[in-house]
Write a protein that binds this DNA or RNA. Structure first.
Length: 648
RNA sequence: GCUGCUGUAGCUCAGAGGUAGAGCACUCCCUUGGUAAGGGAGAGGUCGAGAGUUCAAUUCUCUCCAGCAGCACCA
């Protein structure tokens, strides 16, 4: 037997025989450690205590105190325990895969009947019995052929397919929890009793395609959540409740921002409050774009299919376009049109009107472009994913040499916009050339290098997504993380030499010859609809003051104050504040409660004293205290706050 | 689009094979009250749409529409 050297986190080393397991190592250190050990990090990778270590390595023994590995084992073993429970109750159910995810795990099953909520309760009870049984967990590494034969005999076709998909150099690990067996990469606990029985819950059941492919069979997926203890589980359930309270669909109703209805699925009826947010945001973007050298255009909604055929979209996206056929009786000729699903082809038409010189480039053409896409019904979600929306779109026509500078310029622009809107951090994903693509490798090299150099010059971190670019060019996607940790793709920047080619865009170069410009598709917010949804959820409805649809309510305490209330409202309005009067015959408690629920950031209360002293009593949303200030002071202070950040 | 669930008053939800109820909101009256719900009265619904079963359907069945959760999709 050869010796290997293990290095511990404190730098100490120990020589052991090759093939020693992490469990044996823990045992040799102390009895108590062996008792507490659950797994190990071997060369940084998560290792089962039962796996032999064959080479020199660094090693750290994990206990339940180590959150990440502990949670992984808990969730991973629960996936197996759940699959076992299901097969014990319904032996004919086929098992597939069950990975750890988010706050728990899921497992996909093949079963003719759907699982019901009652079934989930039954499965949960059975899982608790399995945990209580403290069944030993055993691993064996099998040959591919044996494992395959085993699952074929067991009538588990999905497992057979999984084995065929495991890369050749990976060991095939077979696990037993008591008498129940599963194929799994591991690692696992040493027995099922190590799983906390009171810190997990089965949450829901739904359908999912096998291997994520809508052409493959649809399986039933059961989701569970799990933590190290009951308190963590409770804390998570509370977190979910809070998330629900900031759902933009709920706040949209409570704050009277918008509604949607059956007659226009996936489209928004903006109410005055919501439309205020929309227009304030649009005014802001318009100023920002002007300042950054964009020109603004506007293009048609209904466009003949010929243009979409020329752009190539008809071929690929016809099923997702709203088609408008004009009746012959009312038209000069029968025409098939589509509501524009995107603005790019129309912008090329504007570009193509009149000869362009190299002196005109880069030409930054912006449009608050209203688009309609016939999104699949299951994709719709509040105002976040809709069928009618408006992009803060722009296309930059430029030469290949100008791409790098334009890209850097856009990243800085986006950073400035996001900063003003209260998002300090964003992530950049750099998607590179896919397998199937057009254009020469030299051109791809050049454009990819330009983008990467541009990101570097701005100093922002980024990650590379190999092969994720469009067939015609690489792209950047910009992601925001909201207040409850959800990630949203908003901004995008795409390099496109293809559309100018298809639609015949040219410019006259210094040499007097016609050349092909590049087209850079870019959006900062993405769409107003989605971005406002994100703003609402991120702020839980308490939008930054300058964006709040209702900024100040001036509430009377006695009716004798009504005239002064009107004066205060008018003064605030002159200062650029969205102020309204509330002189209803209601108590101040009632008014404060109602406007607080309505997320109005500032309430000014006016009683006899305020009238007499020409003051206001100011209360801010979320605060219990009030302040008495002079009317002039209040107007100055609130007026300054109401100023959009780019005008300060 | 797929799987499952849901659809009753503006909102949140009860209800039952014999054409409907609560709370809040709304309207009116009383109350002028100092920082998160003052009191009283009233009005309000083709029970998502269509078809079928039945003496009788909002309730049972089917189809469609929309919403919700997840999957797939997102130029």
């Amino acid at each position: 037997m050869s010796q290997i050297t293990l290095t511990f986190p404190d730098g100490a080393t120990r020589n052991v025989e090759a093939g020693t397991t992490a469990g044996m190592v823990a045992e040799s250190i102390s009895k108590s450690l062996a008792k507490k050990a659950i797994s190990a990090q071997v060369n940084g990778a998560h290792h089962d205590l039962a796996w032999p270590i064959e080479h020199d390595a660094t090693i750290a023994i994990n206990t339940m105190q180590d959150e990440a590995p502990a949670l992984e084992l808990i969730r991973h073993d629960l996936a197996h325990v759940m699959a076992r429970a299901v097969q014990e109750i319904w032996p004919d159910v086929k098992v597939t895969i069950g990975p750890v995810r988010d706050f728990g795990w899921f497992y996909d099953f093949d079963r003719a009947e759907p699982f019901t909520p009652q079934d989930l309760g039954e499965i949960e009870q059975r899982m608790k019995q399995i945990i209580a049984a403290r069944d030993e967990v055993r691993t064996e590494v099998w040959s591919r052929a044996d494992a395959r034969a085993h699952y074929e005999a067991a009538g588990e076709p999905f497992k057979v397919e999984l084995i065929d998909r495991i890369p050749g150099d990976e060991p095939i690990r077979m696990y037993w929890h008591g008498g129940w067996q599963d194929l799994c990469r591991g690692p696992h606990f040493q027995n099922t009793g190590q799983i906390p029985a009171d810190a997990f819950k089965l949450t829901r059941v739904s359908a999912a395609y096998w291997l994520g492919d809508s052409k493959r069979p649809q399986l039933q997926r059961i989701y569970g959540i799990a933590f190290r203890n009951r308190d963590d589980l409770k804390a998570h359930q509370k977190f979910l409740e809070e998330a629900e309270a900031r759902d933009h669909r709920r706040l949209g109703r409570e704050m009277d921002l918008f509604h949607m209805q059956e007659e226009a699925p996936g489209q928004v009826f903006w109410h005055p409050n919501g439309w205020t947010i929309y227009t304030v945001l649009q005014d802001f973007m318009r100023r920002k774009q002007r300042a950054d050298g964009y020109v603004e255009v506007n293009t048609p909604q209904v466009v003949d299919r010929k243009l979409w055929e020329a752009s190539g979209h008809w071929d690929k996206y016809q099923d997702h376009m709203f088609i408008v056929e004009v009746d012959e009786e009312h038209a000069r000729e029968k025409a098939v049109n589509a509501l524009k699903p995107m603005n790019c082809p129309c912008h090329v038409q504007v570009y193509n009107a009149g000869l362009k010189s190299y002196r005109d480039l880069p030409l930054r053409m912006a449009e608050f472009g209203s688009c309609n896409r016939y999104e699949p019904s299951g994709a719709l979600h509040g105002i976040m994913r809709v069928r009618g929306f408006t992009q803060d779109d722009a296309h930059i026509f430029c030469t290949e040499e100008q791409i790098e500078a334009e890209c850097a310029r856009f990243i800085n622009f986006l950073a400035s916009v996001y900063h003003d809107l209260g998002f300090e951090r964003f992530d950049i994903a750099f998607a590179t050339r896919p397998e199937k693509r057009v254009g020469s490798d030299e051109s791809w090299d050049h454009v990819e290098n330009a983008l990467e150099a541009a990101i570097r010059s701005t100093g922002n971190p980024y990650r590379v997504e190999e092969g994720d670019g469009a067939f015609y060019g690489p792209k950047l996607d910009f992601y925001l993380t909201d207040a409850i940790g959800r990630v949203w793709q908003c901004g995008t920047f795409q390099v496109d030499p293809n559309l100018p080619e298809r639609l015949g865009a040219t410019y006259v170069g210094e040499d007097g010859e016609k050349h092909r410009p590049y087209m850079l598709h870019r959006a900062c917010l993405g769409s107003f609809e989605r971005f406002i949804g994100i703003l609402i959820e991120n702020s839980a409805g308490r939008l930054p003051f300058w964006l709040a649809p209702r900024q100040v309510v001036v509430a009377s305490i006695v009716s004798d104050a009504d005239d002064y209330v009107t004066e205060v409202v008018e003064k605030l309005r002159r200062a650029g504040v969205r102020a309204e009067a509330d002189t209803r015959n209601e108590k101040i408690n009632f008014k404060v409660r109602e406007h607080s629920v309505g997320k109005v950031p500032v309430i000014l209360a006016i009683g006899r004293q305020e009238v007499e002293n020409r003051t206001v009593t100011l209360r801010r949303l979320g605060e219990k205290t009030t302040r008495v200030v002079s009317l002039d002071e209040a107007a100055g202070e609130i007026g300054a706050e109401a100023t959009p950040p780019d005008l300060r």
